[in-house]
């Protein structure tokens, strides 16, 4: 198994262990085993279809991230003894996801503009005479800023490319701000991944519920 797939599988397992930790043993074990099965089936079906391991890992990661709000709400309602038929309907999930979208896009766009401006400043402005590496740092920050903005811009149409652009931008920023490495890559990918995929699926969840007379 590739490192990317192992990491995606590990993240899915860790997240499931986290949000099910306080649930009754039977419910907890069922959800954990179902997710383990799903991830295994996903990996093997996609690899058998000829998909690249990294693309499969990104897909698994995005499925985890996109479902986080639903997972947490399901956990809360199960703890309160309401089970999956909770009155916390899809509308609450949509509201939480919209907040995630807004926060993710706003933070990423802000960082993009900041690094673009800061890169220009230290590369060609006030910091330009403070050392021979400053112009290089400036260019790197400008490229990183552009990648973040490009990721936000193309997110709704090309989610995979957007996540890749933002990930490369985050790595580029870490060249000039090494201490950010441990934070910016997972956080940016997670937030923007959730944001762009929720945008794509928002219309699906907002569709009018159909009446099923036979169930009432």
């Amino acid at each position: 198994m590739s490192r990317a797939l192992a990491a995606a599988e590990g993240l899915a397992t860790a997240w499931t262990a986290f949000y099910t930790r306080d649930l009754p043993a039977e419910v907890r074990e069922r959800r954990r085993r179902e997710i383990a099965s799903d991830v295994w089936e996903h990996e093997h079906a996609a690899l058998a279809a000829g998909e690249h391991a990294v693309a499969v890992a990104v897909d698994i990661l995005l499925r985890v991230v996109r479902g986080m709000a639903a997972d947490v709400l399901w956990g809360w309602s199960t703890l309160r003894g309401r089970g999956a038929g909770s009155p916390l309907t899809g509308r609450v999930v949509i509201m939480v996801n919209r907040l995630v979208i807004a926060a993710g896009v706003a933070v990423t766009a802000f960082l993009g503009v900041y690094f673009l401006a800061n890169g220009f400043s230290i590369g060609f402005g006030a910091g330009g005479d403070q050392g021979e590496l400053y112009p290089l740092y400036g260019i790197i920050e400008m490229v990183a800023g552009l990648l973040l903005l490009a990721g936000v811009g193309i997110g709704p149409r090309r989610p995979r490319l957007a996540v890749a652009a933002i990930a490369v931008g985050a790595v580029a920023i870490s060249v000039t701000h090494v201490w950010l490495l441990v934070l910016n890559i997972p956080a940016t990918i997670a937030v923007i991944g959730a944001a762009v995929w929720r945008m794509r699926s928002a219309s699906r969840q907002e569709g009018p519920p159909a009446t099923a007379a036979a169930t009432s």
Binding site: D38, A70, D71, W74, A84, V93, R204
Partner: peptide, 29 residues
Amino acid sequence: GFGIAQEVAASSERARGLTSHGTLYKALG
């Protein structure tokens, strides 16, 4: 679970890609 996620992705006009874990298993429940 994964089998139905694949089928939903293939057949639904609304679905764009595989349904997320959280949404799928909550709905199944």
